[in-house]
Every structure is written in C-alpha cells, then in structure tokens.
Design a protein around this nucleic acid. Structure first.
Lengths: 194, 194
DNA sequence: GCCAGTACTCTACAGCTGTAGAAGGAGGAG
DNA sequence: CTCCTCCTTCTACAGCTGTAGAGTACTGGC
C-alpha cells in the first residue's frame, strides 16, 4: 500500500468512525483527506476496493503496533490485568476511531466473507491470549482464550457505544483504568477456573 | 406503532441484518416487505425516521420477549448459566438477524445520540443481571453487572461476526450451548470473585 | 346514495454516488 | 530537447436515494 493510499485509508477510517459505513463514499474521503475530488476514486476504483482498503489499513496498523508491544508481558495475573487494561483504555481514547471502525468492519464482514481474511482482528490477540493462558496453567487454552477475547471485545464495545455500561467511569480516567483492570482480573480468574 | 409500520420495520431489520446499514433504503424495505414501492417512504417520511423505526421495533420486540421470560430464574449459578446460554443461543440462531441489527444500531447510535434513548439494550438485561448478582451475594452488583453484560455482549458479537471465535462450535448445536454455559459459569465465578 | 376523512399508492425530481475515462503535468531515459 | 510513462486531477454520466405531493381506493357516518 503506497503512502498516498495509506493517507486516504486513514481518512476513510475517520469517516467510518464518525459517519458510519453509510457515510463512507469516495467524495467524503476526498473531503476528509483534503485532496482534490476524484482522488479517492482514482486509487480505490470501486467502493468495494475502498472498503477493503480500510480493512487492510486497520490490519496494518494493528500489526505495526504489535511489533513493539511484544516486550516482556508479566506472568503475574494482577500485573497482566493492569497491562491489558492500559491497552484497552488506549483503544477507547487515542485509538477510539480505529476501534469503532474495526467494529463496523467486523459487522460488515458478516455479509462480505472476503473481508474476513484481511481483518485478522481476534486472531492475533487470541494467539497471545492462548499463549498467556497456557503459561498461566489453563487446562484448555484454546477454548478459554476465546472466552477471554470475547470478554475484552464486549468490554470495549459496550463502553464505546454506551450500552450496558451507563454509569461506567469515562474512558481515559484513572478510575476507568482501575475498573477495567478489576474486570480483567475477574475475567482471568473466571476463565482460569480459580 | 401500527401493524403496518411494524411489518415494514421488521422488513427493515432484515435488510439491516443482511445488507448492513448502508443497504437500508426506503425502496429496499419496500422490496423486502413485498409492498408497493413508495410505501415505506410514506410511513417513514425521512431516512432518520426509518432508522428510528427500526430501533423502536427492536426495543419493542425485546420488551415483548421479556414479559414471558420473567418466570422463575434459578438462583443456582450452574442452572442459571444453563438458562442464559440457552437464551444466547437463540440470539445467535432464531433471532440472529435481530441481534445483528441491534449491534448495527448500537454502532449507529455512536454518532446519533438521539437513538440511545430508544435503544434500551443493555439497560434491561443489566437490571436483571444486577438483581441476580445481588441475590447471589455480589458485593457491588452495579459494577459487576456491567462486566457480566459486557461478557455476554462480547460472546455473542464475536461468534456472530466470527472474530476471535474461529474454531468455536456452530451456533445452535448442543456443543455450542454447552460451551456457552461453561463460559458463563466461568464469568459468574469471575465476576462474583469466587 | 353521498360525503368526509383516512389509508394507501403512484410519480416526479433534485441531489448524491459509483465508476470510467479523458486531460494535464512531472520526471526520467535516450 | 523529445518522448514516454506514470502519477494526479478533472469531468461526465447513468443509476440510485431521499423526499414531497398529487392521485386513488376504502372506510364509516349520515
């Protein structure tokens, strides 16, 4: 993906996050990116290509992030929960738009199977979760990692859309991080069965 | 909401589930509902009204359901988990479209705050969860119910979109129900802190 | 039977969207 | 300098979408 395409895809992600999939049009991306009208249409000739560009870009951004995150993760459940909470908090603040766009794309993938291959969301975190759970002595990391990832997804989703999480502390605050950490501690406990 | 409007809203829910929010147009709903073109446009004069109709209908359907579900819920965590798993399984099979549409609407509500009032999703289940957790001896049902609902949302979402849940048994099978029940047992354990 | 009001159907139309292709221009090879 | 190539911008256009309003059938009241 060329630099120009990446910039357009970034603008497209912003559009999806703020106006929804419905607002994702070639011209809206042009406007958002501040490029002359027609540019997006030239780089992503069809709308399908544009959506795939968004999905691809989301995957790339995730991968770029995981490279540096691969440093020592603590094996102590409490510290681990703390670390995960920190990441989730970022997903809901700094990376809020990306996270929203990802959920939108996941929903989109429901009726466009070809997107599922690109959007590896859930596979990478899950591999990590599987490893961690194995090291923590889980008996069936395969299954248990699914549950842990589900919990994390639900936690982030609910708070972003404000469903079922009314009354939760605002993302980005220390209270929010503390509550997230507590939730994840509980999840680890529950998932590990002890 | 008149009967006719409800029928159109039902068709609209189907459209949203199968073609996404983007596919939700007056004419698409006409076609889906098998009514003469223009009908949807007459009952929901603007697109905003159409979306609100969908959201309202989803809320109504949920409420209609909860009326009969209010019979004795078991206080034994294992039986309770079994019961919840059964409901979730239905959300992913019989009521799959409704569930998908609801997630789409929740995402939509992110940039249309006026929808949040109608879409009480998360509030009703959470009230139930709060009660149950209190009866089960939770120390902070308010917070813990948020976590439980988040887990449930993530579980269903991940399995519907196939993210992070690759390898999970297909919804509707006894294996799926068993796994769901196990996951919820774990969640209850984790949330309750014991 | 006649009328008013209501429920429904049809049609027009402006604006937006997806898509293709032509036009312009910068830079490098010869 | 000349030409060729690639990158970028501009423009056209068919089809779709949102929305309004006019037309038509159908009710119950008199």
């Amino acid at each position: 993906m060329t630099e120009r395409m990446a910039a357009l895809a970034d603008a497209a992600i912003h559009v999806v996050a703020t106006k929804g999939m419905r607002g994702l049009t070639h011209r809206a991306v042009d406007a958002q990116a501040g490029v002359p009208p027609g540019s997006t249409s030239a780089y992503f000739r069809t709308r399908k290509a544009l959506v795939e560009g968004v999905v691809q870009r989301l995957a790339d951004l995730d991968n770029a992030e995981v490279v540096e995150a691969r440093v020592n993760v603590p094996l102590d459940p409490d510290l681990l929960a703390e670390g995960i909470a920190h990441v989730l908090d970022r997903w809901m603040t700094t990376a809020r738009e990306r996270t929203l766009a990802r959920y939108a794309c996941l929903l989109e993938a429901t009726h466009h199977p070809e997107l599922r291959g690109i959007l590896a969301h859930g596979e990478r975190p899950r591999a990590q979760a599987r490893e961690l759970l194995a090291e923590l002595g889980a008996e069936d990391p395969e299954r248990q990692s699914r549950d842990l990832v589900a919990f994390i997804d639900g936690l982030v989703f609910d708070r972003l859309v404000g469903a079922g999480a009314l009354g939760a502390p605002a993302a980005g605050t220390p209270e929010s991080r503390a509550e997230l950490a507590a939730a994840i501690r509980g999840a680890l406990r529950g998932v590990l069965g002890k």
